[in-house]
Each structure stands twice: as C-alpha cells, then as structure tokens.
C-alpha cells in the first residue's frame, strides 16, 4: 500500500516510517523504565532490609482504591487499543470518542488517587506534609515507606497527566487532520506511551499495596 501524501523524506513507504517511529518510542520507553527502575530498585532494597516495617506500613494503604484504580487503568488501555483500531479503519468519529474516553478514564484514576492522597494526609501519613502520625511500631522507618510510596505514585501520576494531555492533543488533531493515514501512526505511538504508564502501575500495585497480603 503506497501512501505518498504522508510519508516523510528519508523513508521509502509508510510502513517503514511507522517502524522507525515505533522503535524510537520503545527506546524512549526504555529510558523511562530505567527512571522508574531506580525507584523500584531502591524500594526493593529497603523492603528487603526492613521487611516487618514495610509490611506493617503497607497495611495503612487503601487496598480498594489501588485495586479499583488498576481496573480503571486496564479499561483505559482497552479504549486506547480500540482507538488505534479505529484509526486503522479510518473511523474518525469513533477514534475521537475513544481518545476522549481514554483521557476521561485517566482523570478518573487521578481523582481516586487524589482522594487517597487527601485521606492519607488527613491521617498524618505524609511525612513531608505536616506531622507524621503513624501509629505502628517502627515509626521512623515507616516514614521511609511513605516517602517512597508518594515518590513512586507521584511520578506515575505525573506521567499519567502527561498521557492525558497527549490524548487531548491527539483528539484535537483527529478532529481536523486531513490525512488519517498519518494520524494512524501518531495514535499508535501515543498508545505505546499510554500502555507503558499502565504497565508501570501494574507493578506498583502489588509492590506497594499487596506487600505481605
């Protein structure tokens, strides 16, 4: 299939250009993985050093919120995957709806996360915001757990916010783009980023919420 109108100069055809873009995105995601990986590694090292503290502190997190949020993100991955399908089939209105649905599910995730943060601050579990009112046995080392919890989920939430911005941008472009063939590539690349943020959460959920339970 030749699509001369939206193939850039160095590429032979659209397929080759899409492959190059996809590989570039995976390399970027690789660096992102190592950014999160540093936090994951630090967390695992402290966890193995202070096992009792961390499992005790982990029970202060709201399991229902973490689990529901995992479901929300998995569902957003579905709408994202369907958006790529819609772009492939050149179904513009469907694509627009699915992109907006993905962004909306991202906002739902941030809303639940925000409520969780609010409750934790209220309960005095945020060491960097006011007094640390943790009631467990290992008070000082529990601070470490909560600092890491806020750093890891905070970095993730930041990435998700970026993803929501990306979805809205894509939806804006999709409204007017003359060539849906080019848009198909852009939506696919954006989808890679969105799914990656989902994958990070898939690991954050058991490591933070399901420790020792």
């Amino acid at each position: 299939m030749t699509e001369p109108s939206y193939v850039s100069l160095p590429y032979v055809d659209a397929r080759q250009q899409e492959d190059a873009a996809v590989i570039g995105m995976w390399i970027f995601l690789g660096t992102e993985l190592l950014l999160f990986g540093g936090l994951f590694t630090g967390y695992l090292a402290y966890r193995s050093a202070f096992q009792e503290t961390f499992s005790e502190a982990s029970h202060h997190l709201k399991l229902w919120a973490g689990a529901v949020n995992t479901g929300v993100l998995l569902t957003s991955s579905l709408t994202m995957a369907l958006a790529v399908e819609a772009a492939r089939a050149h179904r513009r209105r469907l694509l627009l709806g699915l992109l907006l649905a993905t962004a909306l599910l991202g906002l739902v995730f941030l809303g639940i996360k925000g409520y969780e943060y609010y409750r934790e601050v209220e309960e005095g579990l945020a060491p960097f915001l006011g007094e640390f009112l943790y009631s467990g046995v290992y008070r000082e080392r529990a601070e470490l757990f909560f600092n890491m919890y806020f750093a890891m989920t905070g970095l993730h939430a930041l990435h998700l916010s970026g993803g929501i911005g990306l979805m809205l941008t894509m939806a804006f472009i999709a409204r007017r783009a003359p060539h849906l063939g080019r848009l198909r590539r852009q939506v696919k690349i954006s989808g890679l980023y969105w799914h990656f943020v989902d994958v990070v959460w898939v690991f954050l959920f058991p490591l933070l919420y399901l420790l020792d339970r």
Partner: peptide, 24 residues
C-alpha cells in the same frame, strides 16, 4: 456509524474490537 471524511483507500481494515475486549 458513517464516517464521510475518510481517505479514498478501498483496502482499509475493518474495525475489529473483539480481540481487545477479550484481552481486557
């Protein structure tokens, strides 16, 4: 749903949501 603003390609793949929904 009927989209008018599509390109002229006739060999577009159809929209197939089944696989993604099963995986979800």
């Amino acid at each position: 749903m009927n989209d008018h603003a599509t390109d002229t390609d006739n060999d577009l793949p159809p929209f197939k949501p089944t696989g993604a929904i099963v995986l979800w």
